[in-house]
Amino acid sequence: AQASVVANQLIPINTRLTLVMMRSEVVTPVGIPAEDIPALVSMQVNRAVPLGTTLMPDMVKGYA
């Protein structure tokens, strides 16, 4: 199954992502693919992302 990017902590709005904030997990619905984690580093989220939330393309500025 495809692993997705999941928030490893609460990520406040406009925060630049770092590796420690993200983990890969097989979840439904599928979000951003886990292999994109390196590309997500330093991108900003456009909303607060609670712990355990799957990151979707529309949550990350410049990803989609």
Results as ranks from 00 to 15, higher is better:
29 P>H: 05
8 N>H: 11
14 N>C: 07
38 P>D: 09
60 V>K: 01
15 T>V: 10
7 A>M: 04
33 P>R: 11
19 L>S: 06
35 E>T: 12
23 R>Y: 04
55 L>Q: 01
49 V>A: 05
1 A>S: 09
11 I>C: 03
3 A>S: 11
61 K>Y: 08
50 P>M: 14
41 V>I: 14
42 S>W: 11
23 R>S: 05
4 S>P: 02
29 P>R: 04
28 T>H: 13
29 P>E: 06
17 L>S: 00
44 Q>P: 06
3 A>V: 07
41 V>F: 08
53 T>Y: 12
13 I>V: 13
5 V>H: 02
3 A>N: 07
14 N>W: 10
25 E>L: 07
55 L>W: 01
59 M>F: 11
50 P>C: 08
11 I>Y: 00
64 A>V: 12
44 Q>I: 15
40 L>K: 01
64 A>T: 15
10 L>E: 11
34 A>T: 08
35 E>M: 09
60 V>T: 02
3 A>W: 07
1 A>D: 15
27 V>R: 11
33 P>C: 07
1 A>K: 04
56 M>L: 12
30 V>Y: 14
36 D>P: 01
45 V>R: 00
51 L>R: 11
50 P>A: 11
50 P>S: 10
25 E>H: 13
58 D>P: 08
1 A>R: 03
64 A>H: 14
63 Y>D: 03
63 Y>K: 03
51 L>Q: 14
53 T>E: 09
11 I>P: 00
5 V>G: 02
55 L>N: 01
35 E>N: 10
17 L>Q: 00
35 E>C: 05
64 A>Q: 13
53 T>A: 13
1 A>G: 14
38 P>N: 09
30 V>E: 11
64 A>N: 12
18 T>A: 08
22 M>N: 00
37 I>Q: 06
5 V>D: 01
49 V>I: 11
43 M>D: 04
28 T>V: 07
36 D>M: 12
58 D>S: 13
64 A>G: 10
7 A>Q: 00
45 V>I: 07
47 R>G: 07
37 I>H: 03
10 L>A: 10
6 V>L: 08
18 T>Y: 04
1 A>F: 13
41 V>E: 10
39 A>K: 15
52 G>F: 04
16 R>C: 06
36 D>N: 14
44 Q>L: 09
28 T>D: 15
28 T>C: 08
55 L>D: 01
61 K>E: 14
47 R>F: 07
9 Q>Y: 15
10 L>M: 12
38 P>Q: 11
49 V>T: 05
21 M>Y: 09
59 M>A: 08
25 E>T: 07
16 R>P: 12
6 V>D: 01
23 R>E: 03
35 E>F: 12
47 R>Q: 10
5 V>A: 07
12 P>E: 14
9 Q>D: 10
57 P>K: 07
29 P>M: 04
38 P>E: 09
22 M>Y: 02
32 I>A: 01
46 N>T: 15
23 R>A: 05
42 S>E: 09
36 D>H: 11
9 Q>A: 12
6 V>Y: 02
33 P>Y: 11
33 P>M: 09
54 T>W: 02
4 S>V: 02
60 V>I: 07
12 P>I: 05
38 P>H: 15
34 A>H: 09
53 T>W: 15
46 N>A: 09
44 Q>G: 05
61 K>A: 12
1 A>Q: 14
56 M>C: 05
10 L>G: 09
46 N>C: 05
14 N>R: 09
59 M>D: 15
50 P>Y: 12
19 L>I: 06
48 A>D: 15
1 A>P: 11
31 G>K: 00
49 V>M: 05
55 L>E: 00
6 V>K: 04
28 T>S: 12
4 S>W: 02
60 V>S: 01
37 I>L: 13
30 V>G: 08
7 A>I: 06
27 V>N: 03
46 N>W: 11
53 T>C: 04
39 A>G: 08
18 T>F: 04
